[in-house]
Design a binder for these strands. Structure first.
Lengths: 205, 205
DNA sequence: TGAAATAAACAACAGGTTGTTCGTTATTAT
DNA sequence: ATAATAACGAACAACCTGTTGTTTATTTCA
């Protein structure tokens, strides 16, 4: 069996489809896009599209899965250092390496990420991203980062708070032109999360 | 000219349209809904729908505007007490009355709010809601709650962080069956926001 | 290099949704 | 009671969808 992933025609077609998708999401929003829009923009036949994807949702899902897979890889890679930093109980404001890595990855894929996380993007992806962060924080894999018995508030709300907040900041960064470096963004997020929004606002202590 | 807003037929039709909308959003998601779905569920003629709304987006917008208007009214009403609480600089963990009022309002309109803020809801509404919270915090009306010169992080990211976090917690509350009272939710949000997520997680101090 | 494999292009289809416009029926407000 | 009008049913052209069958162009390997 020939490997269709190395066929130059296949690669070219898929790339132009995905570029068209990103453009169209930013222009009219994912839900308003038709398959015809995509194929017209990508300059391919509509039948060719259906040879690669079931429909626009299938296309979207496959693009998103690649992102999630890579995020998961980054998380696993940086997990040991995060656990170590927490156990030393150091009052470090040093941006966690994990957060820096994530922002560097977002920076590389900013075209797609901006579109899909933007105001006309795909809500279900945001939901999955939050679930992913939730599991990363409270996940049962090995020792959980956070222990339920020490919480001052219900765990589900704390997880929602943190993951929503972080995604919100990422969205703002992508939409305002990514002027800050990944390191600076990690510092911002760490400052707010470690000391609290009120402290970061200069309204406390 | 007769007032079409008091005609019983009009009221009845609009109500059944909106009930159908809420049901269908929770079932299949806003984007997947067709006008035909709505009219079939509402048991009205399709032509009648177009006599009231331009399309499904127009319907959605009009429903959302009512919500935003009422939220704005609640915010304005509770503004004085929030400013007073901040100026006394009291380390109060008392849930701000504003937050309690908002949760009480969300509780009353939980059907629509759960649908529209849920995983199959309307992303543009979330965006507008964040903008609204942003303006409420940094708004130029009278004295702003937060002053730019005291911030430890850029204002735009702090605002994104806080508003996204709060909406995230609201979504979690709506989706998990609203088991906590509005007062309890206000306490949870105040605890995390005042002392920071790390503190609320039992990982600090 | 030449033949086999296969991706892409093209065209035509049935089925569904959209937004609009008729004349008709039923309900409402006064 | 009656004039006003909301809602109805039916029909319409236009569009998008997803599928199928055929032809053309490119790639791969013997």
């Amino acid at each position: 069996m020939r490997d269709s992933n190395t066929d130059l025609r296949v690669i070219r077609t898929r790339e132009s489809i995905r570029n068209a998708l990103v453009e169209l999401i930013e222009e009219k929003g994912f839900e308003a896009i038709s398959v015809k829009d995509i194929t017209t923009r990508a300059k391919i036949n509509r039948g060719t599209f259906y040879a690669h994807y079931q429909d626009k949702f299938d296309l979207m899902t496959k693009c998103e899965e690649e992102i999630m897979l890579e995020m998961s890889r980054i998380a696993k890679q940086n997990f040991p250092s995060v656990i170590a930093a927490l156990e030393t109980n150091s009052p470090t404001v040093t941006p966690f390496p994990l957060v820096v890595s994530v922002f560097e990855y977002l920076n590389e894929n900013s075209g797609f990420m901006k579109a899909v996380l933007g105001p006309k993007g795909d809500l279900s992806f945001q939901t999955r991203l939050k679930d992913f962060m939730w599991k990363t924080m409270f996940g049962n894999n090995s020792e959980a980062l956070v222990k339920e018995e020490n919480l001052l508030v219900p765990g589900q709300y704390l997880a929602s708070y943190i993951s929503s907040a972080h995604i919100g900041v990422i969205q703002q960064w992508l939409n305002s032109g990514r002027k800050e470096s990944p390191q600076e963004m990690a510092r911002i997020l760490s400052t707010i999360t470690a000391n609290g929004p009120m402290f970061a606002a200069g309204l406390k202590k």
